[in-house]
Nucleic acid binder design. Structure first.
Length: 154
DNA sequence: GCCAACGTTGGC
DNA sequence: GCCAACGTTGGC
């Protein structure tokens, strides 16, 4: 069964354009247990993704992507030279997980957070909830399709 | 740069 | 197991 998710990234660090250029990427660096559990157990190949730019000039959804590899250990955790090492994680006893994703579609225009807030079908969208800080949040199929349809408006 | 919200750490 | 202190996230 296909599930739908929203992945946040800071474009200064890794933008949707970087993903387009890379073709496929390892979604490494998640160091939050709730999100880790989703990456390990729930997010599966074929699941669809809204790609969000946070901490940016324009905040919102800039494109869509798809999961191409189920969760597997995040090897950057035991690489002391990585951007987010965790010495408690090891190949024998991995703590952190990641999936691989590839881009589907780059939106012609960003769908801003304000546009999403203004849309009555998206009032329950998790990413819009106050205090939400998870780097990955679940999206319903209806919410996903609403956002995609917004991206197709001219 | 500010600060609200939340997760983690560590003393007790 | 409580909770204060601290660090991080991320919109504004």
């Amino acid at each position: 069964m296909t599930n739908f998710w929203l992945f946040k990234s800071e474009p200064n660090t890794y933008s949707f354009n970087d993903l387009v250029n890379d073709g496929v990427t390892e979604w490494d660096g998640v160091r939050n247990f709730q999100v880790r559990n989703w990456l390990r157990d729930t997010i599966k190949t074929g699941d669809q993704i809204l790609f969000w730019h946070s901490n940016a000039k324009e905040i919102g959804v800039v494109g869509s992507a798809i999961v191409v590899k189920d969760g597997y250990p995040d090897h950057t955790a035991w690489d002391p030279l990585s951007d987010h090492p965790d010495p408690k994680s090891s190949p024998d006893n991995p703590i952190w997980y990641m999936v691989d994703i590839k881009p589907l579609k780059e939106f012609m225009k960003i769908i801003t957070m304000q546009q999403l807030r203004d849309h009555p079908a998206l009032v329950d969208m998790v990413v819009l909830k106050k205090g939400n800080r998870l780097s990955i949040t679940p999206v319903t199929q209806a919410e996903y399709q609403t956002v995609i349809s917004l991206s197709e408006d001219s």
